[in-house]
Computed example of a mutant assay.
Amino acid sequence: MSATDTPTLRLHRASAQVFVTDFARAITFYRTLLGFDVVFTYGEPPFYGEVRRGEASFNLRHVDESPFVADVREREQLLSASIVTTNAKELFGEFEAAGVDFQERLQLKPWGSNEFVVRDPDGNLILFGTPSAPPPPDAESRRESPPTPVAKDPHRPVDEEFDRDPQATQRGTTAAQFP
């Protein structure tokens, strides 16, 4: 348990903020094509709201212009949200029949999950996926070689404390360090 978690303090969920330039168009897209319910909208005219399907939800936030530079989302495959589903293949078929625009069609990824990525009218990329089955309990004992170490990123600024002391990441920060 980390220093900030206590038996009475728990984090329950995080909500993505999806930026849209036409709020009404976004609500229609998520409700009509993707089957989300509108939980609430706020403002007159509405500029903020939440959509939900099953246990997955996220917020829509109107912006006058996209905060993303040109084609950076496509080029870098920047996801606005990632949603876990019990059956990505079935959901992909539903979305395909509805005429949804896909940035990436359904595929089995090297890490074992079935995933696809939807592109909304503002270019936001939303991933839907079914995780791979958990490995059998004895899978670790059958591993033939250790995992490949991650190469140091030459573009990352050097954090001398972290580079000297691998325990630095476990110390974290305290609220008193922030104004």
Rank of each mutant, 00 (worst) to 15 (best):
P179G: 12
Q177D: 13
G35A: 11
P157W: 02
D159G: 05
N87H: 06
F128Q: 05
T169P: 00
L79D: 00
P131C: 02
H12G: 10
D153V: 08
H62K: 14
T32K: 07
S132V: 11
S132A: 15
A81K: 03
R164A: 15
S82G: 13
T130C: 05
D153R: 02
T169S: 07
A81Q: 09
G43P: 02
E74Y: 01
V18N: 01
P154R: 06
V51S: 04
A176N: 05
F128W: 05
T148Y: 02
A98Q: 15
F178W: 09
F40L: 14
P147T: 07
E74M: 01
R25I: 04
Q107T: 14
G123P: 13
P136S: 10
Q107N: 12
P7L: 13
V38C: 06
T21C: 15
Q167T: 12
V39W: 02
A175V: 15
V69F: 00
D138A: 10
L60I: 08
A70N: 10
G172F: 04
P147F: 04
A3E: 10
E96Y: 04
S141P: 00
S66F: 03
V51H: 01
L60Q: 06
Q107S: 13
P45H: 03
R143A: 15
E144Q: 11
P136A: 08
E55T: 13
D153G: 08
F116A: 12
L79C: 05
E94T: 14
L9S: 12
Q167K: 09
P149K: 03
R31L: 07
D71R: 02
R143T: 13
P67T: 02
A175C: 07
K152Y: 00
L91T: 04
F116R: 08
K109F: 03
Q107R: 11
D71L: 00
R61D: 00
V72K: 01
P147W: 02
S132E: 07
L60K: 03
Q170A: 11
E74H: 06
Q17F: 11
L11A: 13
F23L: 09
N87E: 12
D122N: 12
S80Q: 02
E76T: 09
T148A: 14
V18Y: 00
Y30F: 14
L125K: 03
S2P: 03
P166S: 07
I83E: 02
V38N: 03
S113K: 03
L78T: 11
E96H: 07
